[in-house]
């Protein structure tokens, strides 16, 4: 397997993404809205009845969960772009000439993975950085210091989010190379959020302590193993023939 070939495929996809407005907006819109909306809600909440907003003690229990929120976003963001990398080729019927080149399944899958991973990572990191900056601005006066960044958010941004993106990219690539239409692919792909949403809710229900760095690291470790397994699964389930003949 040659990394350089995967990179050629990824670089080609980057160039085509630039022309796809819906792909770009799918990357930008959600992180941007979350980064602005949640801090706004936090700053306006609790102002009714003459109260002075959410008290600092409560803020300190709310904020850690928001870090994990970005893991959920990380799992959601790659769905459109990852399924587009495969489905786009199917729609343009460009898979046949591509598969006729001396490129292996692994090289193609890795290339598609990189093509979906890097823009998603950029979107999640950019979005979370913006989120932290705005949140700091909003909460500083209450809690007296800049809450973000901290070790937990570092673990989320540089470990959990990338691994969650990878998880989502891999599942989406598997799904979109096997289904025969765009909508099914997107609907199934969106399910990748579920495990993370479940974790997030468990966190809110105090079933899991997502504020604990060691817990985050354990989750990251599990995710890493799953991601590695998924790559082999995707390679084993990639059926050139079906991809060519089952697509209408």
């Amino acid at each position: 397997m040659k990394l350089s070939k995967s990179w050629v495929i990824a670089a080609k996809d980057f160039r085509t993404f630039r022309k796809k407005r819906n792909v770009i907006s799918s990357l930008i819109v959600v992180p941007l809205i979350v980064a602005i909306l949640i801090p706004l809600v936090i700053s306006f909440a609790g102002h009714r009845n003459g109260q002075n907003g959410i008290p600092a003690t409560e803020l300190l229990t709310l904020l850690p969960a928001f870090a994990f929120f970005y893991v959920m976003i990380a799992a959601y963001i790659p769905t459109p772009i990852a399924s587009y990398t495969i489905i786009g080729e199917k729609v343009e019927k460009s898979l046949e000439p591509l598969l006729a080149t001396p490129t292996t399944d692994g090289e193609i899958l890795l290339g598609k993975g990189i093509a979906a991973f890097l823009p998603s990572l950029a979107a999640v990191l950019g979005g979370s950085a913006l989120f932290m900056a705005v949140m700091d601005l909003v909460t500083r006066s209450k809690i007296g210091y800049y809450y973000f960044p901290n070790w937990n958010t570092a673990a989320v941004m540089f470990l959990l989010a990338p691994l969650a993106i990878l998880f989502s990219v891999e599942l989406n690539v598997i799904v979109s190379s096997r289904v025969s239409d765009v909508r099914t692919s997107q609907q199934l792909g969106a399910l990748t959020v579920l495990p993370f949403a479940a974790l997030y809710v468990s966190g809110e229900l105090n079933l899991v302590d997502l504020g604990s760095l060691s817990n985050l690291l354990i989750i990251a470790g599990v995710l890493l193993v799953v991601d590695i397994l998924l790559f082999f699964v995707s390679r084993a389930t990639f059926r050139r023939e079906e991809i060519l003949t089952k697509w209408k």
């Binding site: 080609k12 160039r15 085509t16 630039r18 022309k19 796809k20 343009e92 019927k93 460009s94 898979l95 046949e96 000439p97 591509l98 006729a100 080149t101 001396p102």
Partner: peptide, 18 residues
């Protein structure tokens, strides 16, 4: 074999955005 051959498929399958 794939290294050695060229294929003009029945659908051109070009990238419209390139």
């Amino acid at each position: 074999i794939r290294r050695l051959i060229g294929l003009v498929p029945d659908n051109v399958g070009l990238y419209d955005d390139l």
